[in-house]
């Protein structure tokens, strides 16, 4: 059987680093963070909310590997348990914004005409509104909790996904295979749902992974401002907020560790997402 190989020379350098150390490390880190979040209650060495005031701001020791924060809580345990809220929030944002944004973008791109104008202009209206501001507005109206900022950020991220999906559908619908299915008598909706959507899905999903990183940092930022996650819930952004007074007293560890974890996680998700996006974009068609 003859194989056809189509290579894009411009991507050759990227391809050489196809399974480069950076990607492997990032993928490993993402896997680790997810595993920690899933297994948190079993692997956390201490109760994240147990207060040992006598031990406050203790340096790392055998009992407290990453030290203790100003309120006397074990930093490692808060980090491990905090992975749950810190990942759950962005997950909600990504799932909702992808489903809703994808649906809007696909309908707009596929149907075109006035519906496209209506949907595209409506979603772009939200672009005029900064996502964080929207989230602050939502939390101030609906009070504390993860749901309000997640919904707000989902709405803020929706237009980006919608735009991407729309442009992909616009390119995909001009492909001759779509015309071929129409000639075969398949209805437009059928062709769109069974062929166009699965063909654009990998690109949208790769973009979602990148969005996950951004959502994580936005939500951590909100927690740092004291919005969203309730005060006692372990959360990475909240930990940075709680630890900032300790920095002033010369004990930066309880704030720096969650900062580092946030940054590493965001970078890891971005690297993995970009890698997948490159991969599906350079895919042989």
């Amino acid at each position: 059987m003859t194989m056809t190989l189509v290579r894009r020379p411009g991507l050759a350098r990227l391809r050489a680093t196809d399974r480069g150390p950076l990607y492997l490390a990032s993928a490993g880190f993402v896997g680790l963070v997810v595993a920690v979040a899933l297994l948190a209650p079993w692997i956390a060495p201490h109760d994240p909310n147990t207060v040992e005031l006598g031990n406050a701001l203790a340096a790392p020791s055998g009992d407290h590997l990453l030290g203790v924060d100003a309120a006397g809580r074990d930093t490692l345990s808060r980090l491990v348990v905090g992975a749950r809220t810190s990942l759950l929030g962005p997950l909600g944002v990504v799932v909702f914004s992808t489903l809703a944004g994808g649906a809007v973008g696909v309908v707009a791109g596929w149907r075109g005409g006035w519906l496209d104008s209506l949907l595209s202009r409506t979603t772009e209206l939200t672009l005029a509104f900064p996502g964080l501001l929207l989230a602050i507005l939502f939390t101030s109206v609906y009070g504390e909790g993860l749901l309000a900022p997640v919904v707000a950020l989902s709405i803020a991220y929706l237009p980006y996904v919608a735009r991407l999906a729309r442009s992909l559908v616009l390119a995909e619908r001009e492909r001759p295979y779509v015309a071929a299915y129409r000639v075969q008598g398949h209805s437009g909706t059928d062709v769109c749902l069974r062929h166009v959507v699965p063909n654009i899905a990998p690109v949208v999903l790769a973009q979602c992974t990148v969005n996950f990183g951004y959502a994580l940092i936005d939500l951590a930022g909100l927690s740092f401002l004291g919005l969203g996650v309730p005060a006692l819930t372990p959360d990475w952004g909240r930990m940075v907020f709680d630890g900032k007074s300790a920095i002033q007293s010369g004990y930066p560890l309880s704030a720096i560790v969650p900062c580092l974890v946030i940054i590493l996680t965001v970078v890891a998700f971005n690297v993995v997402g970009e890698h997948w996006a490159d991969k599906v974009a350079g895919r042989n068609r």
Binding site: P176, Y177, V183, H195, R285
Partner: peptide, 26 residues
């Protein structure tokens, strides 16, 4: 739907580029 299918049975088409006229996933 019935008329659409009846028309498909009247005339079919083979496209120029066989690399593009088949869904890559199918």
């Amino acid at each position: 739907r019935a008329e659409r299918l009846a028309r498909a049975r009247q005339i079919q088409m083979v496209f120029q580029d066989p690399y593009l006229s088949l869904d890559p996933r199918t």
